[in-house]
Design a protein around this nucleic acid. Structure first.
Lengths: 160, 160
DNA sequence: ATTACTCGGACAACTATTGTCCGAGTCAAG
DNA sequence: CTTGACTCGGACAATAGTTGTCCGAGTAAT
């Protein structure tokens, strides 16, 4: 089990967008994090399709959060990138082979699937507890400083 | 995020081995589940390397559980197949780019990593709560019958 | 009207997973 | 003790998913 590396980038981007007052182009976000701008664009597209960020085209275009950061959970971002499907897919092994259970007796998921789903639910619940605003506060708490403020300034500067 | 399909097979195999009194070859497990025997063998090798099952070679060889089923957790099986590494890998984005944080200020994981790790911990905790014996009991409870007993009989029969 | 800058989806390269094969080793039987 | 057949184990391809790249469509400012 392994999740896409783009999740980390997407989360960082959302936190950074917290400190922005104007739309931020994908290029700017990429050089701030020193990552491939073209690939980051792909992740931002996923966020846009999920409705978490809004894109503006044209000369002073870029991305903006659609909602207050307090109303965007980490789970929202993760699901936007990774998809909402379950990590464990039950192939109904019990209905196959010489001792196959009849389909009419398999209305409820089997014990194995129930266990896996419960674990995933716990995972999602944990991610739902934390919002992007919480992460932003965490950055300021960790560095007891103006890191986020610096980011805001850096984003405002170097503009044409 | 998606986990290997072999996890399901491995869990089913462990449950089945609960009902076996003698070593069960990979071929037999494969035809019971109607899956590729050669690929299933690979998963069983992983379980063997993890020390969950023991392999016996020769004419009446096969696989056996090394411990009582109550002492094997679902997490053990999942980690044997998927590996023990974390699903979220932090690439320390904060140390890169024009506003990079100095390495000496990055001793603790960042807030994003902490959140992801906490969620994974919750996931693992849930999987650790359930043992193979619990799953076996669940099968009997779901079908209030002798499904596991039938499996045991089927494994005993057809032997040379 | 022009121009330059933005996003968006279509197009390759690469890595990890899935699937297959044959040889080494071992136990049971004759 | 010899034979034989059956077992696992690791090395070898095929496939699918992820990572990374490119260029065209559209838009806002000039």
């Amino acid at each position: 089990m392994k999740l896409s590396g783009g999740v980390e980038w997407a989360l960082h981007c959302c936190v950074v967008l917290t400190a922005a007052s104007r739309p931020v182009p994908a290029t700017r976000l990429a050089e701030l994090h020193q990552v491939s701008s073209t690939y980051l664009a792909k992740q931002l597209q996923s966020l846009s399709r999920a409705g978490l960020i809004r894109s503006a085209q044209g000369k002073s275009g870029g991305y903006t959060l659609t909602r207050p950061a307090g109303e965007i959970t980490v789970l929202d971002v993760v699901e936007a990138i990774e998809g909402t499907g379950p990590a464990f897919v039950c192939t109904e092994v019990r209905q196959r082979g010489p001792l196959a259970c009849p389909p009419e007796a398999c209305t409820a998921p089997c014990g194995i699937a129930r266990t896996m789903y419960a674990a995933e639910q716990a995972w999602r619940d944990k991610l739902r507890e934390v919002s992007i605003a919480d992460l932003a506060r965490g950055v300021d708490a960790d560095y007891e400083g103006e890191v986020l403020g610096q980011v805001g300034g850096w984003l405002a500067a170097e503009r044409s």
